[in-house]
Design a protein around this nucleic acid. Structure first.
Lengths: 221, 221
DNA sequence: CCCTTGTGTAAGCACACGCTTACAACGCTA
DNA sequence: TAGCGTTGTAAGCGTGTGCTTACACAAGGG
C-alpha cells in the first residue's frame, strides 16, 4: 500500500513466511480447507482484516492462493467462516458471571494463539472500513447479550456494552498502540483496577465474582 | 482495495465529492496549503489513515493531487502536519480535572467536525498497521500524562491510560462498530455511568469533578 | 486406453494506491 | 517584452490487491 519495499513471497514454500505447515497428505480437500482456515485465523488475528492479504494467508497455509477462492469464494467469506468456526465457543462455554474476567484475561494475555484469537481478530479488524465491522459485530453482540443478562437494570445492555468497550480499548492500547506502561503492565494489576471500577457498572450477585485484588493463578490460556 | 466498483473521481471539481470547496483566489500558495490541511483533517477523521486516500483529500480540497506532495512530501507527513495543527490544543487548554469528561463528551457528540476531530483521527487510525500508531501515539500520551497528574497513586499513569482506553473503546463502539444501544445512547446517560465507575480509578479532589448523574447542558462542541 | 472428475498450480486481469515527472499558466521584475 | 521563479495540471510509473482463468496432474470407471 505504500509502494515501497516488500518481499515478493511465492505461493508455496516461500521465503520468509513463518509457520508455513508442510503439505503432508497430497490432494486431501478437507485437510487443505482446514489448513487454510487455521492459517486465516492466525493471520486475521495478527494483522486484522485489511492488512491480512489473501496471498499471505495462502503462503502461511502452504497452499495456492486460488484455492482460497475455490473453497471460500472471497476474502470476506473467509473471515466469516473463520469467525463461525471457533466462534461463540468461549461465550457459550464460560458461565456469564465469569465471562468478563475471562475475556479481560484473554485480552491481557499476549501471544495469544489460543481461544482469545477470536477477540484479537475483533480488535484488529475494527478499523477496517470494509467488511469487518458487519461480520464482526455479531461477536460483540453475543458477548454483550451474555453480560447484559447479569444485570437487572433496564439499561443492562448499555452497561454491558460499556464494559465491552473498555475491554476493547484496553486490548487496543496494549496490542496495537502498545502504549506504555499499559502495554506491559501485569495482568493482575490491570484486572484489579478494571474489576474494581466495573462493579459499580455491572453489580454481580454477591460471592459470585472474583474479589478485585485477589490472585487467580494460572488462568492464562 | 476490493478490486470492484469505484467512481473514478477526477482531481478538480470532481463529481461525487462532498464538500469540495471552490477554488477562489487563484495561485495563493498559503490558501492552498490551508485548504489541503482542512480537507485532510476532515478526511482522516472520517475514514482513518489507511482508508483516507490522497486522491480523495485532493478532490475534497479542490486541488490537484500532486500539490499535496509538493507541500507536504508524503501522506504520512500530511497526517503529522494535521495533528500538529490543531494538536494538543484541547489538551493544553482545558483544565486537567475536566479533561476526561470533556474528551468523553467529545467522543459522545457525533457529527463532530469540531474540536473532537483530532480524537476521531485517533480513533479511526488505530487499526492502521502502517504509520498512524507511531504518529498518533503522541496524542494519547499527552492525554494520559495530563490525566495521570490528577492522581497521587504511584500507578497514576496506568490508571490514566485505562481511562483513556475506555474512552477509546466507547468511541470505537459508537463511531465505527455502531453497536446498539450504545451507538445512540444519550451522552448524559453514558457519561453518568462512566464517571461513576471511574471515580474509583481516578479519584479527584472533592468538589472539582462533576457529579455523576448531574446534567451539564450545552457542552457539546 | 480414454474420458471424466476432483484437486492443485502458474499466470494474469483490472484497478486503486502513493508518488513522480514533464509541462502549462501565471505574475512578477528588469 | 523577455526572462524567471512560483503555482497548478495531466499523465503515468511501479507496486500491491482481490479475484479469475487456463492449464497440469492424480485417481477411478467405462
Amino acid at each position: 500500500m505504500d509502494g515501497g519495499e516488500h518481499t515478493q513471497g511465492q505461493d508455496r514454500s516461500a521465503g520468509g513466511v513463518p509457520g508455513g505447515e508442510p503439505p503432508q497428505r497430497p490432494r486431501d480437500a478437507r485437510e487443505t480447507r482446514a489448513r487454510i482456515l487455521r492459517a486465516a485465523g492466525a493471520v486475521f488475528a495478527e494483522r486484522g482484516y485489511d492488512a491480512a492479504t489473501v496471498r499471505y494467508v495462502a503462503a502461511r497455509a502452504g497452499v495456492n492462493q486460488a484455492l482460497i477462492f475455490r473453497y471460500f469464494g472471497s476474502k470476506k467469506a473467509l473471515l466469516t467462516e473463520v469467525m463461525a468456526q471457533d466462534g461463540k465457543e468461549q461465550v457459550s462455554t464460560t458461565p456469564p458471571e465469569r465471562l468478563f474476567e475471562t475475556a479481560l484475561r484473554g485480552v491481557l494475555a499476549e501471544g495469544g494463539a489460543d481461544a482469545d484469537r477470536l477477540l484479537a481478530v475483533y480488535l484488529r479488524s475494527i478499523g477496517s472500513g470494509d467488511a469487518a465491522p458487519e461480520t464482526v459485530r455479531a461477536l460483540g453482540e453475543e458477548y454483550a447479550a451474555a453480560l447484559a443478562a447479569l444485570s437487572e437494570a433496564d439499561d443492562g445492555t448499555l452497561r454491558a456494552q460499556l464494559a465491552m468497550a473498555w475491554l476493547l480499548g484496553i486490548g487496543l492500547m496494549r496490542v496495537v498502540v502498545r502504549q506504555e506502561p499499559l502495554a506491559s503492565a501485569a495482568p493482575d494489576a490491570v484486572c484489579a483496577h478494571v474489576l474494581t471500577a466495573l462493579d459499580r457498572l455491572l453489580p454481580m450477585p454477591p460471592g459470585e465474582e472474583t474479589r478485585a485484588g485477589e490472585e487467580r493463578p494460572g488462568v492464562r490460556s
